[in-house]
């Protein structure tokens, strides 16, 4: 599992890669901790290279969204594979997150 940061204008894009599961989600959470401390207001998570996310990964996303809300931040998601999107849908989290089919559309929405 890896997380690479890049900036697109005033949006911080995180390119996630690999499986987000019970073993790797604590690492993703650590990356998020740093961004929370920096109070990054606009974050886009790019799931293009994520083949699977388990419920610990989903919970990590939920927690991140909640923490960002506290300082008026916005979290968006893009490029989810059908399998990953399905997991957001089963848990009804697709209703919570702004999920966009392409990075371009997601960036426009901030």
């Amino acid at each position: 599992m890896s997380v690479k940061e890049r900036n697109e204008g005033d949006v911080m894009v995180l390119d996630l890669s690999g499986e987000i599961n019970i073993n790797t989600s604590p690492d993703v959470r650590k990356c998020f901790d740093k961004l929370i401390k920096e109070q990054k207001k606009k974050i886009l998570l790019n799931f293009e290279e994520v083949g699977y996310i388990d419920s610990s990964g989903l919970a990590t996303m939920v927690e991140m969204m909640q923490r960002m809300k506290r300082f008026g931040g916005t979290l968006r998601l893009t490029n989810l594979t059908d399998k990953v999107r399905g997991l957001f849908e089963i848990t009804k989290l697709d209703r919570l997150f702004g999920i966009f089919p392409s990075e371009e559309e997601a960036l426009k929405d901030f």
Binding site: I22, S25, P26, R29, S55, S56, L58, A59, T60, V62, E63, I90, T91, K92
Partner: peptide, 18 residues
Amino acid sequence: TKLAPDIIKIMVKMKLGL
């Protein structure tokens, strides 16, 4: 697991929702 208590709490709520 070594997951943080806050994460476990959210996971439990998700499972109970399911």
